[in-house]
Write a protein that binds this DNA or RNA. Sequence first.
DNA 1: GTGTAATTGAAACAGTCGTTTGAATTAATA
DNA 2: TATTAATTCAAACGACTGTTTCAATTACAC
Lengths: 218, 218
Amino acid sequence: MTKADTRQKILDAAEVLFAEHGFGEVSVRQVVHEADVNVASIHYYFGSKDALIEEVLSRRLTPLNEERLRQLSAFEEKASKSGTTITIEDVLYSLVGPAVRLSRGTEAGRHFIRLVGRMFAEPSDSVQAMLKARFEALFRRFNEAFKQALPGVRRKDYFWRLHFVIGAMSLTLCDSQRPALLSEGACNPEDVEEVIAQLVAFCAAGMRAEAPKKRRTR
Amino acid sequence: MTKADTRQKILDAAEVLFAEHGFGEVSVRQVVHEADVNVASIHYYFGSKDALIEEVLSRRLTPLNEERLRQLSAFEEKASKSGTTITIEDVLYSLVGPAVRLSRGTEAGRHFIRLVGRMFAEPSDSVQAMLKARFEALFRRFNEAFKQALPGVRRKDYFWRLHFVIGAMSLTLCDSQRPALLSEGACNPEDVEEVIAQLVAFCAAGMRAEAPKKRRTR
DNA sequence: GTGTAATTGAAACAGTCGTTTGAATTAATA
DNA sequence: TATTAATTCAAACGACTGTTTCAATTACAC
């Protein structure tokens, strides 16, 4: 067995187990058992369990965010060629499309994406710091694009709505089965383009909403 | 110290710790240390760690969901008296209002609500079964109300959108600080009625959106 | 084929885990 | 106040945690 094989087997097994049960609940011994390698391999290749977690995440997160930026650039170029500006649907499509496709393509992608969704609800400082580092560039780029697509929306309203978009997206990535269960089969979570279209339509309408007014507290 | 005191101290400490670090990451010894009681108390009062988790959740979830139903009924009554039907804003307001208020009121509420948000991203079977049991009645009741408020929306579209609403709400409850951080202070997560108004406006617009159309896969 | 480095293996490290025990203590009942 | 029941306590249970050690094995350059 070559070096690459063992590393890969550990990462694959860890991805599945972490997605299924969370970081804290999965022991390195479960990982090495599933990967069919020795206990010491994890520390030989990664140094520690925490370092392994980092590796599991960055392995797929980097290409995913690159793809998002690629799609966004393509939409912007297309718009500028036709003398228009990018639409909110285009921006959302670039943001959620690659992620949903990854989450529904292979079994590995499904596990990984659930892992990311789980992390967004994870308040632990180390995880949040990691997320921030990996998403900062993406965030700045999409902020500009959203601004262009939503000229009339106030700054404050925009940031709240971005937060809601992230929430809707996270849950959709993290839990693919609930809509099917709740609707008793009417929703098909495996119809990737349908999921994307639903998510984009919902978020675009929410983003474009009238500025909210507070109610009297009851 | 009376019996009630010890039980209460354990529940309070467990709520904070579980919300902060998750179920698996918190040991019963951390809980008893924080609660300043003996290790055996947890098994004396609750039987097991799992049973303690259940107790922590149901202690606040039951009154929360009762309040949601109360508000919904009040809106429905008001509408029927004036010969109109309930609006989507009213339904959403009943769903998210009590939860957001709980999450921003006391420190205990904040911790508890983060716990619930975290659980929605938790795929573990035992947790999902627990959630299902505790939310089933609420779910049926709100389904009817949404149906009334959204006569033109197809069944399939509705269930997808409900899923997105839950996602937006979950993240907002779970992570109160991110909007403030991302917006560099423009959003104030402590302005409870503002948060509710923003969430309701976003979700109402999303719920009322035009039926989505799939794009060509790129 | 020999020597050297990379990798794997089984065993053990010191801690921590959830849980249990049974005696010591407190509170309630009579 | 005496008796009984409820509660607390320190200590220990075996199992499991992440990590380390070092000999055995494999791969590769010469």
